[in-house]
């Protein structure tokens, strides 16, 4: 008897994660701007008009009601602060910051409050809260890019990974998005889930119906190879896989590591891989200064120097704001061609 394989999109998988956890645990609430939409218009027969930028929260209000699916006014500083207070007093809030670009307005609540509360209070307070936020450019050479320019396309996760106390996960597929989201909700500390806006069909895939977790703090080797380790984060994992396919055609076997959690970083898996392949290219969608790309490159250089046949290469987005024009945006973001060129340079 064959069961048809159920495939979900990235957004659908996150939706399912939220739904399952809200069913399991009545203290899980979600809040953010237009996570439902048409708030308070039920009397006109209108509700659930939006569902967040990727529709990841659509339908939740129908099942769980407005008491637990809370559309907020535009007040990130206020509602992220509320999540901190709610998490200290018995709830497991999941807040949505629509786009990571908006995080500046509530940065205090994330870096000073959520991240540090447990430590500052001598470990006597737990803070089970999740911040979901969308990031990224399309950057795939289509005739149109993401088209959202400098204030709605950034990656910015490096500034979050920089903060001790904050766990930051970057799922890349529907499968790991569901598992990491569930793990984030069940974690007793603050976790940021970075959700790429333009994963499209590359992230779509089989997702089991039941609840499961993907461990926070673990990388995953998604393709085995012996000649070079390509380290990808979020959508860049797919760029690495595309590059690996191209390289394989030329006889170069690339191993691809999907980082999945950028803080705390699973250095061991990356370093062990590099010790086997002797080369490393890190591919990161964030801008280069103080980036994950350079951080990972530095850690590999320090721990595996004697194993390296070439300098570690860090590929980042351009050190510029995100441009609007599609032709510029495509050049801004790392792509498979740049990864292939870097590997060829290493192998010589």
């Amino acid at each position: 008897m064959s069961t048809p394989i159920r495939e979900l999109s990235f957004g659908q998988a996150i939706n399912e994660a939220l739904r399952l956890e809200m069913r399991r645990d009545p203290t899980v609430i979600v809040m953010g701007e237009d996570i439902a939409g048409a708030a308070g218009r039920e009397h006109l027969g209108l509700s659930d008009a939006w569902g967040g930028p990727m529709r990841a929260t659509r339908g939740l209000i129908k099942e769980f009601g407005a008491a637990r699916v809370i559309d907020t006014p535009i007040a990130e500083m206020g509602f992220t602060g509320m999540a901190v207070g709610a998490a200290m007093t018995g709830l497991r809030p999941v807040v949505e910051i629509m786009f990571v670009d908006l995080i500046g307005v509530c940065y205090d609540q994330i870096i000073n409050q959520a991240a540090k509360m447990h430590y500052m209070m001598g470990g006597k307070v737990e803070l089970p809260m999740v911040i979901r936020t969308a990031y990224g450019t399309r950057g795939d050479k289509r005739s149109y890019g993401g088209g959202a320019a400098a204030q709605h396309s950034q990656t910015l996760y490096s500034v979050l990974a920089h903060i001790p106390g904050l766990k930051v996960v970057v799922p890349s597929t529907a499968y790991n998005a569901k598992g990491l989201t569930i793990a984030a909700i069940r974690d007793n500390g603050p976790v940021v889930v970075m959700e790429h806006k333009f994963l499209g069909t590359s992230a779509k895939g089989h997702v089991p119906e039941e609840a499961y977790t993907v461990p926070i703090g673990k990388c995953e080797i998604v393709r085995k190879g012996k000649d070079v380790t390509l380290v990808g984060i979020g959508r860049m994992t797919h760029v690495c896989l595309e590059a690996a396919t191209t390289l394989a055609a030329g006889g170069i076997e690339a191993e691809v590591v999907d980082v999945l959690t950028i803080n705390p970083l699973d250095e061991e898996t990356i370093i062990e891989s590099v010790k086997r392949t002797h080369r490393c290219v890190v591919v990161d969608e964030d801008t280069p200064v103080c980036s994950m790309a350079r951080d990972i490159a530095a850690r590999v250089g320090e721990a595996a120097f004697d194993f390296l046949d070439a300098p570690v290469k860090a590929i980042s987005s351009a050190d510029t704001p995100v441009p609007f024009a599609a032709v510029l945006e495509a050049n801004y973001t790392p792509n498979a061609d740049k990864v292939v060129a870097a590997v060829k340079e290493q192998i010589g």
Partner: peptide, 15 residues
């Protein structure tokens, strides 16, 4: 900052 935390606790009481 803590004004937000008080409001979150109040939300917690309500939920």
């Amino acid at each position: 900052a803590s004004v937000g935390h008080a409001l979150g606790a109040a939300l917690s009481a309500k939920v």
